[in-house]
Amino acid sequence: MSTHPSRDDAPVLEVTDLSVEYHGEHRTVRAVDRVSFTIGRGEIFGLAGESGCGKSTAANAVMRLLREPAAITGGTIRFQGRDVLALDAEELRTLRWREVAMVFQSAMSSLNPVMTVGDQIVDIFTTHERLRKSVARERAAELLELVRIDPGRLRSYPHQLSGGMRQRVVIAMAVALRPQLLIMDEPTTALDVVVQQEIMAQIAELQRSLGFSVLFITHDMSLMIELSHRMAVMYAGRFVETAPARDLFAHPRHPYTRALINAFPPLSGPNTPLVGLREGVRFTDIPDLREEAPGHWVAPVPVGTVIDGGRA
């Protein structure tokens, strides 16, 4: 799964010093704090972190989906070299479906419950590609076949499908217009492990055949390491570590990264006690990343910080 993408061409996505703030009546929270990353062509980039760390906010910022009270307060986002923050409404519309597509956790809320799956897919083609209905129907059938669903299912309503099938339909719709970047925010969190694995294998296969780039968000480190080429770990709006996924798994350098990996005990080998983060530990004033090994960037941890806890 980890054939490395070619590095010779320019990145598809370039995020530099991005900051996002939520403005409340009494205080302002910086949800994303001076975050920088790039995603190469055909690269799967993982963004790991716990709920509230800012990973979904960062992804929404890339699509410019943030609404009041959240606002981008600093930094730049470049997609294929263009400044995303300078796009007008029409350009944004094109960006969102045609160039960047998004898959969320809950397939049920991404699908219209009172429309058949077929009608929803046909809508994409008639609206964005101005295809005739009959042609759009053919394309819809091909699309379902692409994600291994019987085209007969075009006549089904979302509630008639299993959870896994619904998520496959959503993925099919996301890649319908052949976007260059697919953003997936916890795409399999609501699914059982057997279905999850099949969906992830499907995504990896689609990615290989269609060649798009992926921004993959999850809290599940094992899943992320399996799928991603490169990944970053986010904590309280900051990146604490970024490296090739295998390297990060084999040699995690930041204590928070170690705690996240330890949260998923191994299924083979000796049953050694693991420690997580001590209840209530907070990292504050996280410094900028430093390159500690080739391609492996880490935020230095102040000497004397007490981190590990939860007596084993």
Partner: peptide
């Protein structure tokens, strides 16, 4: 629970 504190709760169960 947040993943970073899960193992702590499992350790508590063992104890």
């Amino acid at each position: 629970l947040d993943v970073s504190v899960r193992i702590g709760v499992l350790n508590l169960m063992r104890r």
